[in-house]
């Protein structure tokens, strides 16, 4: 039988605000050894001051040391782990359970975040801004549209994550099963696919500028070139191909002037 959910005591507003502001710098000391570990400890730390003995006490130091160990997650989704770990530590949960939770949640928090944010939300916002640019949007409009929409989602995710983590504690896995997190990447990518079809030619047209004499040739070249890059199956990254091709074109353009 599932035990009844325990109501979380409210996290004081001042501590919540400090944790949230620290979440924005959670990757400040990202490295190849403990990855996000120190960032997690840095974010959870304000809540640990509530432990018996206060800041610097034995319970505080043990908990802080535990939270600074190896950890990996998507930076926005790490808010869930921070909330859950803060709750677990202040509730005095057994350290072994906390350690198991830390190990278990790395994978899901990474994969859900990568699919939702990096592979869906960010490209969607980029394509929306490129479409606005293609429709003739001013610099201010294009930037405001991109940053406004992207960060509405970004900040909402961090705020929700921290709250959900604190409310559910180590049982937060259920929050990851929400339909919004599971299904929205697919809907966002479907909308993005339509948007890409509209945005790319419009953006190309605006960058090329007046006179579309070469536009047909460019579109044909894009179709052929895109097909070739796709057939390479990731053996060469697009930006490297672009760098080599453009550098070659620059050298050619200098050589023909002589």
């Amino acid at each position: 039988m599932t035990p009844p959910p325990v109501l979380a005591p409210p996290l004081p507003l001042a501590i919540r605000l400090v944790i949230f502001s620290r979440l924005l710098a959670i990757q400040g000391s990202w490295n190849y050894e403990i990855l996000l570990g120190n960032g997690i400890g840095f974010c959870v730390e304000p809540a640990l001051r509530q432990l018996p003995g206060g800041k610097g006490g034995p319970a505080y130091r043990e908990a802080l040391a535990r939270e600074c160990r190896y950890f990996n997650a998507h930076p926005y989704m790490a808010a869930i782990a921070v909330g859950a770990l803060a709750r677990a530590e202040t509730d005095g949960v057994d350290p072994d359970r906390i350690e198991r939770f830390r190990t278990a949640c790395c994978g899901p928090l990474g994969s859900v975040g990568d699919r939702l944010v990096w592979a869906a939300w960010l490209p969607f916002c980029s394509l929306l801004a490129l479409a606005a640019f293609g429709f003739g949007g001013s610099p201010l409009l294009v930037i405001a549209l991109f940053l406004g929409i992207y960060n509405a989602g970004h900040l909402a995710l961090r705020v929700w994550g921290l709250r959900a983590g604190w409310q559910h504690g180590l049982r937060v896995a259920s929050a990851l099963g929400r339909p919004l997190l599971r299904q929205s990447p697919q809907y966002v990518t479907q909308v993005s696919a339509v948007l890409a079809g509209i945005a790319i030619p419009l953006a190309m047209d605006r960058i090329v500028g007046p006179g579309r004499g070469l536009f047909g040739v460019v579109v044909l070249g894009v179709a052929v070139g895109g097909w070739i890059i796709v057939r390479l199956h990731g053996r060469a990254e697009g930006w490297r191909i672009a760098l080599v091709a453009l550098a070659g074109f620059v050298l050619f353009s200098i050589s023909v002037s002589r």
Binding site: I207, G211, L214, V218, G221, A242, L246
Partner: peptide
């Protein structure tokens, strides 16, 4: 620079859009 301005810009756009489509 020795290439026509329109061709130069079309080359940049073409390469950028190729990467985008892929």
């Amino acid at each position: 620079w020795g290439t026509d301005a329109r061709i130069a810009r079309a080359a940049v756009v073409g390469i950028a859009a190729t990467v985008a489509v892929a």
